[in-house]
């Protein structure tokens, strides 16, 4: 049985360490900085290290939908970024099939540009060709529902309400098909009608993607969407197994 399944992501003893500048004691005060310089050497004094993920190992297989659960700050999003190869790991290795992608395009968009130009810019940033964007442009706009209340797509994004902005961002991000797809709390955007549409789109993405990772605080969403769950606590893998078992254990843990 184990031999017939095709692994898509293998995490081997992954550690992620953030270096935080300005988190240390004395940083920010000029006299402290001066005395540090005078003492010499210890220039790294003001740098604090945050060990966000500590030795996580697992193997994900084709066709699985894996929920990552855990309390705030337990390292879920960081682990997701490490799998995607976006956050360098301090030690250990992540092997993956194809290019795992994070469902998210927010950082590429610019509030001062029109929605229309942001659709194109976001698509290009995700690696779509101009041709693909032209073909899907209308779908993206229709899906977002931005134009339901007038021609908003030709206005700068800074004029959108926060819900409209979130809807357009999700629509752009979900326009591309992925090998290994990771979703970080993206399900709770927009109004009820839009949430229903995005739930459906995620199902479609799941069907075309090999493996889906989902980070969510809503245990209900994880139970509905995933068949396997990984529970992280303080950066360590606490439990890994079928979604029901892990979610039950997590719920009794968090009370």
């Amino acid at each position: 049985m184990a031999d017939t399944r095709v692994p898509t992501v293998i995490a081997d003893d992954v550690h992620v360490v953030y270096k935080v500048h300005g988190g240390g004691k004395g940083r920010g005060s000029a006299t402290a900085a001066l005395s540090r310089i005078l003492r010499g050497g210890k220039a790294e004094k003001g740098v604090r290290e945050v060990h966000a993920v500590r030795g996580v190992s697992f193997t994900a297989y084709k066709g699985e939908a894996i929920g990552l659960i855990g309390t705030n700050g337990s390292g879920k999003s960081t682990l997701l970024k490490a799998i995607a190869g976006l956050q360098p790991v301090a030690s250990g290795k992540v092997y993956s099939h194809g290019q795992p992608s994070l469902l998210g395009v927010n950082a590429a968009l610019m509030n001062d540009l029109t929605g229309e130009r942001n659709v194109i810019l976001g698509g290009l940033a995700m690696g779509m060709t101009k041709q693909q964007i032209r073909e899907r442009y209308q779908d993206i706009v229709d899906f977002s529902g931005i134009n339901e209340k007038g021609d908003f797509i030709s206005l700068p994004m800074r004029t959108y309400s926060s819900g409209m902005g979130a809807r357009l961002r999700f629509s752009i991000a979900a326009a591309k098909d992925h090998d290994v797809l990771m979703i970080d709390e993206a399900l709770a955007t927009g109004d009820a009608a839009f949430q229903k549409r995005s739930q459906k789109r995620i199902e479609e993405l799941r069907a075309t993607a090999g493996t889906v990772f989902l980070v969510s605080h809503s245990i209900g969403t994880v139970r509905e969407t995933c068949d396997r769950a990984i529970w992280l606590e303080r950066g360590e893998l606490r439990m890994d197994g079928p979604v029901k078992e892990v979610c039950d254990a997590y719920e009794s843990f968090s009370g």
Binding site: V6, A11, T59, Y95, H97
Partner: peptide, 14 residues
């Protein structure tokens, strides 16, 4: 893990 990855043609992420 490294051997399993090699067997299925997985590459190091990033």
């Amino acid at each position: 893990p490294a051997e399993l990855a090699a067997l299925h043609g997985l590459t190091v992420s990033g």
